[in-house]
Design a binder for these strands. Sequence first.
RNA 1: UGGGGUGUCGUCAAGCGGUAAGACUCAGGCCUUUGGAGCCUGCAUUCGGAGGUUCGAAUCCUCCCGCCCCAGCCA
Length: 560
Amino acid sequence: MIENDALTQSDFIREIVDNDLKTGKRDRVATRFPPEPNGYLHIGHAKSVCLNFGLARQYKGTCNLRMDDTDPAGESMEFVGSIQDDVRWLGFDWEDRLFFASDYFEKLCQFAIDLIKAGKAYVCSLSADQIRAYRGTLTEPGKNSPYRDRPIEENLDLFSRMRSGEFQDGAHVLRAKIDMASPNVTMRDPVIYRIKRSGHYRMGNDWVIYPMYDFAHCLSDSIEGITHSICTLEFENNRPLYDWFVNELIEGPKPRQVEFARLNVSYTILSKRRLIELVENKLVNGWDDPRMPTVAGMRRRGYTASSIREFCSRIGVAKNDNLVDIALLEHCVREDLNESAPRAMAVLHPLKVIIDNYPEGRAEDMECANHPQKPEMGTRKVPFSNTIYIEKDDFMEDPPRKYKRLGPGREIRLRNSYVIRFSSMVKDAVTGEIRELHCTYDPDTRNAAPQDGRKVDGVIHWVSAAHAVPAMVRLYDRLFKVADPAGTEGDMTDLLNPESLEVINAAYVEPGLAQATPGQKYQFERLGYFCCDLKDSLPGKPVFNRIVTLRDSWAKIAGK
RNA sequence: UGGGGUGUCGUCAAGCGGUAAGACUCAGGCCUUUGGAGCCUGCAUUCGGAGGUUCGAAUCCUCCCGCCCCAGCCA
């Protein structure tokens, strides 16, 4: 079912894996995708999911799904559930290997005791501020904590009492004894356990001490027999620490950390902190708002899993800082939907057209192809009558030269129907706004060229006024108005695109769409791809989300 | 001014000493009952800069410059 994947792809990570296999350093590949369940997955996570699960598939290995839940603040089952939904929806399967770092708390605690016994860890009773001060700066070495040389027995006793809840939050921490003068700040006696009485979404109040990422992650990898621990570049500084813990505590084959550049996409933001902000400040309508770069948001918008996979495959994997053009994502979506989405007609901004020489009360069923290049997708019948709606944009009172649509004296083809000619227009006496158009049709042109051989260039879509179904249509656009919001100064709120959502309450769709199934995707001809909303659409009262517009070469000409 | 990483077309990204892939974007053209789709064409004499090694360098060496990450009891 995964058609477009990485089976033939290559990148520096695959080269490393190839080499580890070839030299016999490893005889299998085991990866893991380790999100912290404190938010929803976004397109950046999707890149990591595709990489980790893709590697496993390519090398016939395994990829575990592991919740990296070592800091209870902000973690919840809701997020655990959404993460599973999203990974599964993206097309990947962790089989029976769903793990939780929190399930390793007991083992991790034993590892910490091993470290203390080896004289490589100590309980430090400095305050958070003091620890910071003792750490030194980027250019100056740190100073040893006065508690650094506590006897092993005392450390053991204190750590055990930390665990049993004898001390207040923050009273003590357990630290690795490495090197306060290391030029790499992460090696300056990092904290590995802290006291936190917040309660854990899974473990309840079983624990009051929690391991830090640097300690828990590498050991979780080791426990699971991970061979290649793939993470993003900002953890490169932490690799010596990763290796230090593993070397001190693990025998036999050790996991190898490999870092790649995290994804950035133009006109959006991928920092989890910022996304949480958007949701909590109600700047968007939840994690699955179709404008969000979250997997849930993209799914709701109507993006397909395969187009997201294709995107992840096309952007590659490297170590350069990057800002991938969102146009590439949109391209992947169009490319996929062009193949699979049945066509339909919908009028977003209706302008009434009366065809004066067409018998009133008469209706004809027009046979329409569901896909112009794919006859196997069949046809459908769309009713036509003397009063139709066309798009306001498709008429201009004083059109420019290159405009190929309706105007005074002009003739155009109605898609899947007749050729009509403009006769007159009716304007509002007060506002001057065009109220309706009167046209005549050429009866010989039903799905046929005019008999006299005259050329009709323009084609516009329409819907029969008496038969069309009113629908709500939501037009989504990029969330931010600047290409690189993350790299732009100022309040994020000021950078939001005020036109990222336009709701049309009174659009008209062809009758067949009244019963559209939520999640079904269509191409509304000449407009774009639309998805019947998963949550809000009702039979007879359909709601459609615009997934992405069609490429619009007229907009380019008109914009010049 | 410490340490780690990284600089190849507008944006991603191949390239691994033998003379700059591909994709997206963009610009033209063909075709078309979607100004859609499709098809064709064009788009880095040059690889952050300067030196050097070599018959030959984006690839090796030296120096310089830019950008990113690290001083959470976050991950």
